[in-house]
Design a protein around this nucleic acid. Structure first.
Lengths: 226, 226
DNA sequence: TCTCAAACGGGTATAAATAACCATTGAATA
DNA sequence: TATTCAATGGTTATTTATACCCGTTTGAGA
């Protein structure tokens, strides 16, 4: 620890390369910030941080990380894992959404701040320095979200997809593509009965009433492209 | 027109402020580029460009612009309008999606190039210079999308929502919330038959086969929150 | 070895959605 | 005024989806 002012070290976890580079470029405009870690997905973050020489002071984490193949690893999950493995790291969530449930949930599981993606760069800077110095950055929006959701059981935005088997995911994808159970059976070379079996499990596991719910679930959890 | 090398002027249309600033910062790294116009939505672009002293050479347009209130103005619509009012302006689409239908459609209606948001900044630079010099930037992905969709009737990603009446939108919203036709009838104080009538019209207008299609349509067009 | 869950197949119902048609009202508009 | 169209309500059938029940096989793990 030298006497001179140290830079706040930043980690970026954001799938869109262009956006990530953009933030990087923006943050580089401040001399007291330094991006020392970047990742395009959440899978390897914990592992690579454990090997890293230096752990970032603040992690900017995109809430909607992509599902890489079958096992999605969301910003939510990463927040949980960071809180467990690197409790000293401050986590700032970046999200396109401004949903109160999202916000309250993320704060609850260990995020130290929540920023929407159309924030002003200056606010991002303030959030970073504040979260570094004070341990938390709670702006007006976040505070209200927390207040209004105190006592409410916040539920995971991304329910653990591990609940869904690979076959179920496959069926879910085809359901979203407007295929009927019979067509899905043909495509997967299984009986309609089996397809309906999977579908029934999907309804149960996702807590849906019908296909509409399944599609919404799939999209919320980014299991299908749209 | 002076003899010295002129800068390529850029316009940015992107709703997420942070992303927009990020691109701006990235592009500022090249001396031969200059961002001279920015907008967070598509509504006022044509109007404000008509008043502007200088028209950008290249416009970077986010495909998924937000629907401001009731009348959405998509990147697709902006592309069409730019082609009409400013035919000399080169339009580069920025999109989070890599869907071939999207790409083919955008090129068809006048876009000069298509970039996904996790492109490398260098590619963005190349796209800008190429589209400026050659009039088009077609990369591997775009080319394949075009080739595979030649002859196919490309359909608008965001069909004009005006196609849907307010009542139909109401029904669509409730369908997405997993209500059955009967429940929707109760909620809206109309007969199940009428609800089914609306639903049939919705299927027809959106070109869907079933509810799954309706939900996907609603989400694609940002008619429902998710 | 035993157990459990996943994937598979089937039967029998009912509920719901979808596909055809048809007709009336009222509001907007050419 | 005549026309159009959204919104309403209807009939009749068929197709799908959903909800119960029943089972077997297989592989992973305790």
């Amino acid at each position: 620890m030298s006497v001179m002012k140290e830079k706040i070290t930043i980690g970026l976890v954001e799938d869109q390369l262009l956006f990530r580079n953009g933030i990087h470029a923006i943050l580089s405009g401040w001399e007291d910030l330094e991006v020392i870690y970047e990742s395009g997905d959440g899978y390897s973050v914990i592992e690579s941080l454990e090997k890293a020489e230096q752990i970032p002071d603040v992690m900017l984490v995109d809430l909607s990380l992509p599902s890489n193949g079958d096992k999605p690893y969301s910003g939510e999950q990463l927040t949980i894992d960071l809180a467990e493995y690197f409790p000293t790291v401050k986590v700032l969530i970046l999200s396109a959404h401004q949903d109160e449930k999202f916000i309250a949930r993320l704060i609850e599981i260990g995020a130290h701040g929540y920023l929407v993606k159309d924030s002003d760069p200056v606010e991002v800077y303030q959030a970073i320095t504040t979260v570094y110095e004070k341990g938390a950055y709670i702006n007006q929006m976040t505070l209200m979200a927390i207040q209004r959701n105190i006592g409410k059981r916040t539920q995971s935005i991304l329910q653990p997809t591990s609940d869904l088997t690979s076959r179920e995911l496959e069926v879910l994808g085809l359901v979203c593509q407007q295929y009927t159970a019979e067509e899905i059976g043909e495509k997967l070379f299984i009986s309609v009965k089996t397809v309906n079996g999977h579908r029934a499990n999907l309804l149960l596991k996702t807590g849906s009433r019908n296909v509409a719910g399944l599609v919404m679930y799939a999209i919320r959890n980014e299991l299908v492209k749209f």
